[in-house]
Nucleic acid binder design. Structure first.
Lengths: 345, 345
DNA sequence: GTATAGCATTGGATCGTTCCAATTCACAAG
DNA sequence: CTTGTGAATTGGAACGATCCAATGCTATAC
């Protein structure tokens, strides 16, 4: 088994081996029906024998080949974004499109590198879950004329389409649910000031308070990084108040899970001693003890829609940008205590 | 602001605009010090003005440019693999290498597509956390002569280097720890028959039992998918035994977390009523209530080492394949009840 | 003035594919 | 025997970069 493949085989090598011209090999590669079946067979056989690997770089140079799209995700360590990415991949699978994934870990610098790299590799479109503090002007310069679909966050003023959940409506529903369960002092936990999504969710929270005639108390809003750890510290902060809350809406599920654990640490039972509602409905939420009541945004579905929207934008370069707002749904499990109430009623 | 960039600018366009030849532009792009600073300035300015984007496809055709490597991960929904991916990215960041990430969701079919696609895009090396049931011969055919580093799993007989934790040793240590805490009936929960990693961890488990003179009881081994849900069902299965265990070693942290929740559901306190030890030490383990005792494998560190190993293999094409076994470490938290014992002693 | 450097720049062939226009081929119709 | 037709195949010029060998330039030494 000497000399397996010193140099990558090219279509010329295949052509020589199959006794045809390189043009014919190219036709076979592109599935043209102009090639006689018998010839096609000889060519594919030669490709097999020589271990031929298609060279997309060469093809793209001629402007041919399937489009490549890039997904640039701000935080793959957050299960929600993993679900989003999986949805995007599924949306690409039907079309003959190759998605490339990159994680920016919330770093705008890394984000810039990654976007540049994807453009250099010839990406014909981008799905972007932008890092925090992304500068819209800088981003516009970076993405140039490429079609862009933002997911979850839309940097104020940046050019591009967007797919996002109804943050404000979802938070309003969640808060109203807690109010209906009899709570009056409801905390809003997690997320940092300046995060746009958090702003929207907080607005929904205040909508519901206002509608119920409950005064907004800034002391009940605890800033914290959107992590499990953040959920723990945020809960600790509001429980230390002289007049502590009896319930909370968390910025997202990861934060909510942190508060659930923090409650358990204190020997308090979520859903009985304190009500918790999350946001996102990641797969994990259902597995908690008690299972987490939350607002389902259907991350995979949003990803799939983002992918399809991007594909359409690539197909029709003239198309107008579009904002898609996904519906949300309250999923009542046990961390909010609704079942107890229902049982008592 | 008409006619922004109808066609992507090429080095010829830059050359014309800067009044130099395309060769000079190329030299500037590659940071050659042969170019007069003043000329370089004129060229970079022109690139700025025309919004020039480097075309890697063209460069690679000539065999130039930074290498691209692919990371093919079997399950990004498992936080452990997310940590691994983040480590790999960090390992690439120092070198001027662009990592591309893809998720196979444990599907060998998808894995084959993804590997093919990465080769076609000119990847010069692969880091592969292979899907379950990956066929070694088929994989060899797919990866061809590319340098490959397997992470976590090494399909029996497949060509390539590997970076893996000391599964057997870690499981032995974990089990010995439970035995030292006084447990005699210790379950092994989660994972499916045929999973190589599980086989190794189970071997370590049996090593420790044997060393302590405890008979292995097959009834204490519960198969289940390696998910939170799997952890729940596996625990339920062994707790239903006539002679139930008092402790368990979980196949991995995700499974362990499932068992923790299942215990809480039954009103039992992990670490007091039942001891749980996990495997991997994902970030989440520390956040549990009670915090999870587990075997730390340092996923990010393994990823970083895999990246560096691959880079070396790419540099020196003649280099021998290498197997790296990472040390593991027992991290004692509270789910095993050790602290109680320590307090009582 | 010519020779001798060495620095800075440049033309052109090349990488592996696509795709257009041109060619070959087989065969039926005139 | 020529002509026409459509199917099958082919040669060659691109695409946008790299990089070698060749050239132009400037300044100094003789």
């Amino acid at each position: 088994m000497e000399g397996e493949s010193p140099q990558r085989a090219t279509i010329r090598d295949i052509a020589r081996a199959a006794g045809v011209s390189k043009s014919t090999v190219s036709l076979v590669l592109n599935g043209s029906d102009l090639v006689k079946p018998q010839t096609r067979a000889r060519v594919t056989e030669a490709m097999q024998a020589l271990g031929y690997v298609y060279n997309r770089s060469a093809a793209r140079l001629r402007g041919a080949g399937n489009p490549v799209i890039g997904m640039v995700i701000n935080d793959l360590a957050n299960p929600f974004y993993t679900e989003l990415a999986i949805g995007i991949e599924r949306g690409c699978q039907t079309a003959a499109v190759v998605p490339f994934l990159a994680n920016t870990a919330e770093s705008p610098v890394r984000q810039a590198q990654v976007i540049r790299s994807m453009r250099e590799h010839g990406a014909s479109g981008l799905i972007l879950a932008p890092a925090l503090d992304t500068d819209a002007a800088q981003l516009d310069a970076l993405t140039g004329a490429l079609p862009v679909v933002f997911a979850m966050r839309h940097p104020r003023g940046a050019r591009g389409s967007a797919v996002m959940p109804d943050n404000r409506g979802g938070a309003r529903t969640a808060t109203a649910h807690l109010i209906a369960l009899g709570h009056r002092r409801i905390a809003f936990l997690g997320g940092m000031p300046g995060m746009a999504v958090r702003g929207e969710r907080q607005a929904g929270y205040r909508d519901a308070l206002r509608a119920a005639g409950i005064a907004f108390d800034p002391a009940l809003v605890a800033d914290a990084r959107p992590t499990r750890e953040g959920g723990r510290t945020a809960l600790a902060q509001v429980l230390a108040l002289a007049d502590p809350p009896t319930a909370c809406l968390a910025y997202n599920d990861v934060v909510a899970i942190g508060t659930l654990h923090a409650l358990a640490d204190r020997g308090r039972v979520a859903g009985r001693d304190f009500a918790v509602v999350g946001f996102d409905d990641i797969a994990e939420a259902r597995q908690m003890s008690p299972p987490l009541t939350t607002i389902a945004v259907n991350g995979e579905g949003l990803g799939e829609r983002a992918a399809r929207l991007l594909l359409r934008l690539i197909e029709q370069p003239g198309a107008k940008d579009e904002i898609v707002i996904g519906a949300t749904q309250l999923v009542v499990r046990q961390s909010c205590g609704a079942r107890l109430t229902a049982g008592a009623a």
